[in-house]
């Protein structure tokens, strides 16, 4: 076109950088309410986490966000669209890495990626090119011809992540991305996800591992029993809800309760777990020294920094993994 018409300014209420907007979102299954009114906003380029124990409503939330589970109440917008009416259009632009593998184990690694790319309406040639790139990215090029059946758990996870990237999604949803993997395999997955984050892909993940969320997420919500109990950055939440350090004291079986009453004035807060005491304090070493001064001899002591696990314990009175 040689001529340009007058510029028309379109005023839109849709914010182009709003990836997820949830307000008062609920999900019920019969009489059981899995998600009981949550408000969440995720913006482009964020790495956002849902941290909570099993049964907190994280997966139900993720399925609603993935536009495969209708909301029972409240407002949900994904990329500015309503999943109730625009499910296919939303799903064309997001990537989903489900908690349980949904790979076809009777097909090869390459075939799994290829057929998935075809679901998104991509031409065969384009899919083949992307498959090669993605195999490289998740370090599975050498396994391209292997049957999925024969892959390790970590490789299957990486393949699922590669598959979720085939449509170059604007948002990548990861439901418990490293649950069930051994520590080494987890680190490989984290490394790949970190690279995606650096490339500017919006990540949304659920986890019940506080270290996973601490490593990957710039912002998170803590969920418990279907509601959000806190929101912030990992460091912000720790600063707000916990002390700088924690002294862990382990006494002989059955003596933890009795010991707790003797040290409770030495810390801001004392938590009694079945196997140990947690003393929340600014200076852990100092606190341990004071404990010894009182003639108490714990079987083992450990001084560490506060983590999101401590935040969760503070907010709910329970541990994340039990």
């Amino acid at each position: 076109m040689s001529e340009r018409g007058p510029r028309v300014r379109t005023v839109s209420t849709v914010d182009a950088d709003s990836m997820i907007h949830a307000s008062g979102v609920r999900k019920s299954f019969g009489s059981f309410e899995a998600v009981r009114g949550i408000d969440v906003d995720v913006r482009r380029g964020e790495a956002f986490g849902f941290l909570g124990p099993n049964g907190a409503g994280k997966s139900s939330t993720m399925r609603m966000v993935a536009a495969v589970s209708p909301v029972s109440a409240g407002t949900l917008r994904i990329l500015g669209m309503d999943p109730a009416t625009d499910g296919p259009r939303i799903r064309a632009r997001i990537g989903v890495c489900p908690q349980e593998d949904t790979l076809d184990t009777e097909l090869t690694v390459r075939e799994n990626l290829y057929i998935y790319g075809r679901y998104f309406g991509l031409p065969r040639r384009e899919v083949r090119e992307r498959v090669d790139e993605l195999l490289e990215f998740v370090q599975l090029t050498e396994k391209a011809g292997a049957m999925v059946e024969d892959l390790s758990g970590g490789m299957k996870r990486r393949l699922t992540i590669a598959r979720s990237l085939i449509n170059r999604p604007e948002v990548l949803l990861l439901d418990e991305p490293t649950t069930g993997l051994d520590p080494q395999a987890r680190h490989v997955v984290w490394d790949r996800l970190f690279r995606l984050r650096q490339q500017g892909v919006t990540l949304v993940l659920t986890s019940h591992y506080m270290d996973e969320v601490e490593q990957l997420c710039s912002r998170l919500v803590v969920m418990d029993k279907g509601v959000i109990v806190a929101e912030g950055s990992p460091l912000g939440l720790i600063g707000e809800h916990s002390t700088r350090e924690v002294a862990e004291l382990r006494f002989a079986v059955g003596e933890n309760e009795a010991a707790a009453s003797k040290v409770e004035d030495l810390a801001d807060r004392v938590e009694v777990l079945p196997d140990r005491l947690l003393l929340y304090t600014a200076d852990g070493e100092e606190t341990v020294a004071r404990v010894h001064e009182r003639g108490l001899e714990p079987v083992a002591t450990l001084v560490r920094r506060s983590t999101l696990e401590d935040v969760f314990l503070r907010l709910t009175g329970r541990t994340l993994v039990d």
Binding site: R93, D104, L107, E111, I115, R118, Y119, F120, G121, L122
Partner: peptide, 28 residues
């Protein structure tokens, strides 16, 4: 560059599954 899209209708969506069924059948 080709973009990922939603199919125009259910039949067009089903056509995208052709490669899945063809690859599976080639094996069995």
């Amino acid at each position: 560059m080709a973009e990922s899209t939603a199919p125009a209708n259910d039949l067009a969506g089903a056509a995208r599954l052709l490669d899945y069924w063809a690859i599976g059948y080639r094996r069995t």
